[in-house]
Design a protein around this nucleic acid. Sequence first.
RNA 1: AAACCGCAAGUGUGCAGUCGCUGUGUGGCAUAGUCCAUGCAGAGGAAAGUCCGAACUUCACAGGGCAGGGUGCCGGUCGAGAACCUCUGGUUCAAGCCCGGGGGCAGCGGUGCAAGCCGUCUGCCACAGAGAGUGCAACAGAAAGCGAACCGCCACGGGAAACCGCGGUAAGGGUGAAAAGGCGGUGUAAGAGACCACCAGACAUUCCAGUGAUGGGAUGUGCUAUGAAAACCUCCCCGAAGCAAGGCCAAAUAAGAACGCUCUUCCCCGUCGGGAAUAAGAGUUGCCCGCUCAAUUCAAAAGGGUAUCGCUCUGCUUGCAGAGCAGUGCCCUCGAGAGAGCUUUCGGGUCGGCCGCAUUAGAUAAAUGGCUGCAGCUUCGCCACUUGCUGGCGAUUCACAGAAUUCGGCUUACAGCUUCGGUUUCAGC
RNA 2: GCGGGUGUAACUCAGUUGGUAGAGUGUUUGCUUCCCAAGCAAAAUGUCGCGAGUUCGAAUCUCGUCACCCGCU
Length: 156
Amino acid sequence: MKISMLTGKHDNSLPRHEIARGKNNLSLLFAKGRRLKSGNLMMMSASVGSQRAGSGASVRVLFTVGKRLVPKAVMRNRIKRLMREAYRLEKPVLLELIAGMAPAEDGGKGVTFIAILYRGSREAVPSLPVFRTEMRTMLQSFAKTAARSASEGDER
RNA sequence: AAACCGCAAGUGUGCAGUCGCUGUGUGGCAUAGUCCAUGCAGAGGAAAGUCCGAACUUCACAGGGCAGGGUGCCGGUCGAGAACCUCUGGUUCAAGCCCGGGGGCAGCGGUGCAAGCCGUCUGCCACAGAGAGUGCAACAGAAAGCGAACCGCCACGGGAAACCGCGGUAAGGGUGAAAAGGCGGUGUAAGAGACCACCAGACAUUCCAGUGAUGGGAUGUGCUAUGAAAACCUCCCCGAAGCAAGGCCAAAUAAGAACGCUCUUCCCCGUCGGGAAUAAGAGUUGCCCGCUCAAUUCAAAAGGGUAUCGCUCUGCUUGCAGAGCAGUGCCCUCGAGAGAGCUUUCGGGUCGGCCGCAUUAGAUAAAUGGCUGCAGCUUCGCCACUUGCUGGCGAUUCACAGAAUUCGGCUUACAGCUUCGGUUUCAGC
RNA sequence: GCGGGUGUAACUCAGUUGGUAGAGUGUUUGCUUCCCAAGCAAAAUGUCGCGAGUUCGAAUCUCGUCACCCGCU
């Protein structure tokens, strides 16, 4: 954590333009996104503009909690804040992995959308370290599958 | 003093560091940005429920009816605000909110034989109309409302008697939530507002007090008319929808309109004037009448050729020819019309975006958070002695709950603390 | 932001001019059978979500409140 703090402040920031938004993009993401499941989280990802993820591409992320799963607005807000904090702290891992991949063929103009959904229980909210470890393993597996699809090439 | 209760009021953990988020001011730049630096601001008492109301916006607004809705006594210098006027101000309207008052019901106390009356008392009341109409009042009871006779009481008739018949009677019994003014007396065969005294209530007229609801008094009438309108209803009152309101900008595709061009087809139709009809669309913000607007159909839009019934005229061979008029049939061009395609233009409008959005929050998968330390609170454990609601150490927890146009009121949720009120217990005087 | 619906026995639902709260399934007991199932007979089971009000009387009428479900760009 200290090392990541020393490498640069911007790696840990999460300004608003890195938050995914727009109804069309998000409906596409939920309709065609690739899914990864973990204990408390589920991740969906899709690329827009380029055919696949690659180095140089920007990443936009979204955090959401279902109203039916967690009825209380305060609990929903707290879970989303914890997920956003976990992503913010684990973001350098993702950036290093993407930088190590083969560069995208279009020069990095595409955008990769990631949605992170909460699927845990509605009473007991997990603590921040739990979210961090789950987020780290999930981002690593995401980068692995993305790299494999990049090496296989795009057949679409 | 303690415990408990309270839809009683208030408060609703604090400070510092660090990593981040949103808005905004200022400054910087070989890079003018999705940049950097820095300052400031950044959830609540309920932000919730959406139960009332107001602002604001759009639509509507000659008028009438139906439906729907209304917590419908009075006053206020309480009220978010709004409208108007003669504009330093005034008037009016305005919530299921606040304060005060009036009236009613129940309780309590006093008084009286009783009915009743009185009250610096307590609690409750959606508090217009049941003397406009319709319907309802289970069971019980004779009878539950165009006024009633079961028992009882009394008179008369019959009978030896028990009793029967017939009539009178609402004082008594019984039923019921409710039984037709109350108590006492006169009176009577027995009774009855039949009559009288004292009360209660209704209606009409009138006087006084009060801003008013209303209260008090006088005279007269009739002696009485049940409850319920949160059953229908009558009277009175009430525009609707809502920031997903509304305004602006504006892709792609499809469809629409106008002008022009090209191609195909031709069943029906073929010149006045004035207008008529249709089924039914839109608006009238729940519906209808009425009103307004638009639409559709017919009417619109002309020339030629040919055949023929009829009429008129001319010619003569007197029954034929020619010309004209009108009608009818057929054909051609043309027109309106239908279909397809193309060019240009236009309007509506979807995705999306901006405004609406602020006066110390202003987002749009929705910012106000994470971590650390110290202090505070709750609970638990251990230790210490000065056994006290004491001190220390460690752990744990920190209620209800998250703005989305704004404001006022209501309701609901709520740990701990403070204050207030009530009940109980203990101690002292 | 606006609008609508539901709440009754363990479960699914009825219940209207307001007047003793019901059906089916299930449960229990008995009969039948060598035993079980099926069948027959009987029984038990209710703060009508909660709190007020109107009424002589409320599941029903009115108001408030709680929980759940649905619709509207």
